[in-house]
Amino acid sequence: MTRDRIGALFFLAVSIAYGLMSLDIRVPPFASEGFTARSLPLALSAAGTLIAFLMLVLPQKDGPGVEPAGRFLAGLGGFDWPRIAGLALNMLAYGFLLTRVGFLVSTILFLIVGYRLLGERRWHVLLLASVPVVVVFWAILTQLLDIFLGSALGRWGQLLAAQFSGGA
């Protein structure tokens, strides 16, 4: 098994799964014959399956693609995966927090965590490269370009503010 054959197997599975999903596409009774919403997806699934099959069976040319799978996968281990995982989680957290704590707080947090993940430890750099950037960006968008960015406090911030104003 070589590197390119792993890729081919992956796309073979994807193409077959896509074809099976395409069979579930509902077609209105009046369009049951001829070209329907299902036709092109099924044709694409067939095309993908054929190409993946050809990639699997055709002899391979010399190059990185013929690297044995074991060596290729071992080589992948040398990459900086923990950082990638950290950045991906940071982006997912940003998506989650954006509407909940508002643009300003969530973006400043996102940038500070991102910088730290990539090795920046100096707090003055972390703050200077995030707070002014975010505030200026927010001001340009909301004040200059009139683009709505949602509530500055977010849903949680608004709830908190309501609690305080209610309690006062």
């Binding site: 950045l87 982006m91 973006t107 990539l118």
Partner: peptide
Amino acid sequence: PSNLLVPLVLFFSLI
């Protein structure tokens, strides 16, 4: 430095 540049590129792409 790329440790400052990459998070900014990610931010501009997402936003």
